[in-house]
């Protein structure tokens, strides 16, 4: 069994869904944040990919593309001690309380 990210040739009969969704603002945010963090030397593409690959297979397969990136950004920044899980959780609660 290849890892969850190593998808070439994994059997499926699923047709290619050619419809494209309009990006939500948070998806633009996540995409751009990786670029910004790269410029600041806080994350590189190889680390981003490792962070994605660190997700469990279930998490990987059930997450959308930028949910995976978000998980990886958090993983790498916490690992490097730039932010802590606790402060991210606290800041997320504030967003929840304010915006629902």
């Amino acid at each position: 069994m290849p890892s969850a990210h190593d998808r070439g040739g994994v059997r499926t009969r699923e047709p290619i869904d050619q419809t494209s969704h309009e990006w939500a603002d948070w998806e633009h945010l996540v995409n751009a944040m990786v670029g910004v963090l790269r410029r600041h030397g806080l994350i590189n593409v190889d680390e981003l990919r490792r962070g994605i690959e660190a997700m469990t297979p279930v998490e990987y397969e059930s997450s959308s593309y930028y949910e995976r990136w978000s998980a990886s950004i958090e993983h790498i920044l916490v690992e490097k001690g730039v932010l802590s899980t606790e402060e991210i959780t606290a800041a997320t609660r504030e967003i929840d309380a304010r915006w629902g």
């Binding site: 939500a24 948070w26 998806e27 945010l29 996540v30 944040m33 997450s63 930028y66 949910e67 990136w69 978000s70 998980a71 950004i73 958090e74 920044l77 932010l83 402060e87 991210i88 800041a91 997320t92 504030e94 967003i95 929840d96």
Partner: peptide, 11 residues
């Protein structure tokens, strides 16, 4: 994960 990304950006 979207909310957490927004939180990360804020921090």
């Amino acid at each position: 994960r979207a909310k957490r990304a927004i939180a990360i950006h804020r921090l």
